[in-house]
Amino acid sequence: MKPEKLSDIKKELLSRSVPELTDICLRIAKYKKENKELLNYLLFDSDDPLAFGEKIKTLLEEEFKALQKHYYYSTKSLRKILRLMNRYTKYTGNKQVEIELSLWFCNNFLQYADLRTSHKPLQGLLIRQLEKISKILPKLHEDLQFDYQSEFEDLLHKADSQAKWISKSLYM
């Protein structure tokens, strides 16, 4: 069975009544947790995406505090944190929230993760986030770019001094 195009679905939704739309939304939310979370965001949190970002930080802060020291387990936990963070960021569709959370993740990574390890997957998590930030920065408004650029440079300086495998010149 092949799903219809989004334009066809939109036309069909416009022809439906409000009670029918409510039933459709509730039915969609019932089958997948992500659909329910997205619906929850759209109904209750979409007014202020930055406040939603703060909620995400609070939620994931406990995960960072419970991070194990062994590189294998900390890598698994950090991947889980990133997966959740990316899922919630996808709901907002806001680049400012995305860069805010990525900077927060990198700062917590430097604080809680074992930076002396040579475990490549663990190192790759931080490196990919730094690359992601450097790609998102030019897409922001000029004022936000200036603010986040200085925060990013501070993060790079901190990472360069704490982790011998990070070179800030690669991201400048």
Rank of each mutant, 00 (worst) to 15 (best):
K2Q: 15
K2G: 12
P3Q: 07
K5I: 00
S7G: 15
D8T: 06
K10A: 15
E12Q: 10
L13C: 06
S15V: 01
S17K: 10
E20F: 11
D23V: 05
I24Q: 01
I24C: 14
C25N: 05
I28K: 09
K30H: 06
K32E: 04
N35Q: 15
K36C: 07
L38R: 14
L38P: 14
Y41S: 08
L42E: 00
L42H: 04
L43Q: 13
L43V: 09
F44C: 11
F44L: 07
S46Y: 06
D47L: 12
D47F: 09
P49Q: 04
F52V: 00
F52R: 05
G53Q: 14
K55G: 08
I56C: 09
T58M: 08
T58K: 08
E62V: 08
E63F: 10
E63A: 12
F64I: 06
Q68H: 03
H70I: 13
H70G: 14
Y71W: 12
Y73T: 15
S74K: 14
K76N: 02
L78Y: 01
K80P: 13
K80S: 15
I81K: 00
L82S: 15
R83I: 11
M85H: 04
N86M: 02
N86E: 10
R87T: 03
Y88G: 05
Y88K: 15
T89N: 15
Y91A: 00
T92M: 05
T92P: 04
G93I: 09
G93D: 04
G93T: 01
N94P: 03
Q96P: 05
V97N: 13
E98D: 07
E100S: 10
E100W: 03
L103A: 03
F105I: 10
N107Q: 14
N108C: 01
F109C: 01
Q111G: 09
A113K: 03
D114C: 06
D114W: 07
D114I: 01
D114T: 00
D114R: 06
R116Q: 11
P121L: 01
P121M: 10
P121T: 00
L125Y: 14
L125F: 11
R128H: 08
R128D: 02
Q129D: 13
L130H: 15
L130E: 09
E131F: 04
I133E: 02
S134Q: 13
S134H: 09
K135D: 05
L137K: 12
K139V: 00
K139R: 06
H141A: 02
L144C: 05
Q145R: 02
F146Y: 11
D147H: 04
Q149F: 08
S150E: 07
S150F: 11
F152D: 12
E153F: 09
E153A: 13
D160M: 14
W165K: 09
I166T: 07
S167Y: 10
S167N: 10
L170E: 11
M172Y: 11
M172K: 05
